[in-house]
Simulated scan of single mutants.
Amino acid sequence: MNASGHGGRRADEVLRSLRAEIVAGTYPAGSRLKEPTLCEAYGVSRVPVREALKQLEAEGFVTSVAYAGVRVAHIDRSEAVDLFTVRTTIEELTVRRCAERFRAERDDPEVHEFGSRLDTLVEAGLGGLGDPDRSDLPPLNTEFHLALAEFSGNASLLALFRQIAAKIEWLYGMDVQVRGEHSWDEHAEIAAAVQAGKVAAAGRLMKRHVQNSLDGYLKRHTPDATSIPGK
């Protein structure tokens, strides 16, 4: 492999690792990200670090200000509302498609297998509530929603969800101590509606679930906490 290809690979590795650490809360919102520290942490030169930070800024995970350096971003009210509005559209469609599959293909082994997977994820999530730090819950939350997107059979919806999945996990991680019980109870209701083939109910429950997540985030992280206008 040539040098440029190797450098690009290292930048991708730093990008994935740094994004995961931001999502996990290793670097909280507002934290300064210093290039020398990151170079030492990941064992790379400044070039891959700078490329990773540039991509993370494009994704909205960090902000760069002249003479002030790079810091982990805060998600303000307007951005949160926009993100959750997009999420509502994607996930309401996704879960309805899943319920439609259960209603139409109930005897298909793949459908039965997916139902078992949903039950396993919900059981794991509810069980994780007993862990004091609840660090397993954010990735489990992502896995639950990603599983629905995959099972929907719609490649476009899946691709759209993947684009916002890391940011959803990031926001969920900020509120997992407060939202944990409610979110996994809601997951259980959504899973039950999907497996019963209740299309309208599944869509309604998912819409309420995403709205509750937004309301909780706004109350705890923004000064003017209200739900999506018109909801």
Score class of each variant (00 low, 15 high):
86 V>L: 13
124 A>I: 02
50 R>I: 06
201 A>R: 14
79 E>C: 03
126 L>K: 01
113 E>L: 11
180 G>C: 00
110 E>S: 15
64 S>T: 13
55 Q>E: 14
12 D>C: 08
116 S>R: 15
30 G>M: 02
167 K>T: 05
9 R>W: 14
183 S>R: 00
168 I>E: 13
147 A>H: 05
183 S>L: 02
65 V>C: 09
51 E>R: 15
199 V>C: 01
223 P>L: 05
207 K>M: 15
26 T>G: 10
90 I>T: 09
151 F>C: 01
202 A>L: 04
176 V>E: 08
228 I>Q: 13
51 E>L: 13
161 F>Q: 03
186 E>M: 06
211 Q>D: 15
91 E>L: 05
120 T>L: 08
115 G>A: 01
132 P>F: 03
64 S>G: 08
137 L>T: 01
86 V>F: 13
103 R>H: 09
165 A>W: 08
52 A>C: 08
165 A>G: 05
153 G>F: 09
127 G>F: 03
218 L>C: 03
163 Q>H: 14
199 V>F: 07
127 G>I: 03
97 R>K: 11
20 A>W: 00
68 A>E: 15
70 V>K: 00
37 T>K: 15
3 A>C: 11
104 A>F: 11
10 R>T: 10
185 D>E: 15
113 E>V: 08
216 G>A: 00
193 A>Y: 00
224 D>L: 11
187 H>Y: 09
40 E>W: 02
188 A>W: 10
100 E>Y: 04
152 S>Y: 00
41 A>R: 11
219 K>Y: 05
114 F>P: 10
49 V>H: 08
